[in-house]
């Protein structure tokens, strides 16, 4: 088909894929020990006998770049789902306080486990984060039922986020000294220090959620016309909304459990992707947002590592620097219309 729109979708997907490959390679190669193309290739193929380069690549860079890609993608999709749910283009896991809720419960669980000398397993972290996300989501839903208007919803979300962050801070300041460094790094958000086991678990979880989201793309499309029309077309609205909540909370929880709270990706990326594709069709947006989130977070992580090397920035401050202006630009453009 020679439809110009189809062509645009294909080109956009190709562009995202190209950027993804490029950034994956850059993230693998760039660092305190730079690895060239040939070196990288050899290290990738010979994990055992590749020497120093292979060890750096396999034990440090690969898990980090894979988690940045997976979790970044998950965050963008979570944002897109929340925007669909609230019919609000600036909704996202961070602005609505959902990430902070997840952070709070993970921090509390972490302190509890570490002080008893228990090792936190990945699924425990995710479960705690999921519970935190759901609690905050519940609070937001109560607020959303009481008032209309997208600005108020966001203000409430930000407030809930602050409350959760404050409690987290308090909990962290009472934690034992040995835990603080660990907790502090994590609560600022970082893709560093995620092991292969966690990456595997995160990949499984995120890809399952992605598949689930794709299955919801049809009712999501109908829901874009509003709840009444969706119901009239045969969408079981109650079940659909519940699935959206669970799915977006699960995605946000996975990200927070492994990388801490990361700001603005959930709002900025879906917006950039929609503008790039010129459509909001869910079955195209879900994979595209995933790719876009992966590209965005890989780029930000690269900057976080390299901008002031050897000092490392928190990922959230980099995503905020790039994400917040996008959100402001989007708001300005909407105002004009």
């Amino acid at each position: 088909m020679n439809d110009p729109r189809i062509k645009r979708y294909r080109l956009s997907f190709a562009l995202l894929a190209l950027l993804l490959v490029l950034l994956l390679a850059l993230n693998a190669g760039v660092g305190s020990t730079a690895l060239g193309g040939a070196e990288l290739w050899r290290a990738l193929l010979h994990r055992e006998e590749g020497g120093m380069a292979a060890r750096i690549l396999w034990s440090i860079r690969l898990p980090r770049l894979l988690s940045a890609a997976l979790l970044g993608g998950a965050l963008a999709v979570a944002g897109y789902l929340l925007q669909t749910f609230f019919s609000n283009p600036i909704a996202g896991p961070f602005v609505l306080g959902i990430s902070s809720g997840a952070k709070l419960l993970v921090a509390l669980t972490m302190i509890g486990c570490l002080s008893r000398g228990l090792v936190m397993r990945a699924w425990v972290m995710v479960a705690a984060a999921f519970l935190g996300s759901l609690l905050c989501m519940g609070a937001i839903l109560l607020v959303a039922r009481k008032m209309r208007g997208m600005a108020m919803l966001i203000v409430c979300g930000v407030m809930i986020g602050y409350v959760c962050s404050a409690i987290t801070e308090i909990a962290v300041s009472f934690a034992e000294d040995s835990n603080i460094v660990n907790l502090h790094n994590w609560s600022m958000g970082s893709f560093a220090g995620i092991g292969w086991g966690d990456v595997g678990f995160a990949a499984l979880l995120v890809l399952l959620c992605l598949g689930w989201a794709m299955l919801l793309s049809k009712p999501m499309g109908a829901y874009q016309l509003g709840e009444g029309y969706a119901r009239n077309m045969g969408v079981n609205v109650r079940s659909f909304r519940l699935q959206l909540i669970l799915l977006s909370s699960l995605l946000a929880a996975a990200v927070t459990a492994f990388a801490g709270p990361i700001s603005f990706v959930g709002v900025a990326v879906p917006h950039l992707i929609k503008s790039l594709f010129g459509t909001a069709q869910p079955r195209r947006m879900i994979p595209a947002c995933f790719l876009g989130g992966a590209v965005f977070c890989l780029g930000c992580d690269l900057l976080a590592r390299m901008a002031f090397a050897p000092m490392e920035l928190s990922i959230s401050s980099v995503t905020a620097v790039f994400g917040a202006p996008v959100v402001i630009a989007m708001l300005l453009r909407r105002q004009k219309r």
Partner: peptide
Amino acid sequence: AVLTERPEPEL
């Protein structure tokens, strides 16, 4: 149905 609500779907 044609409803009174006025959908404003993005894009």
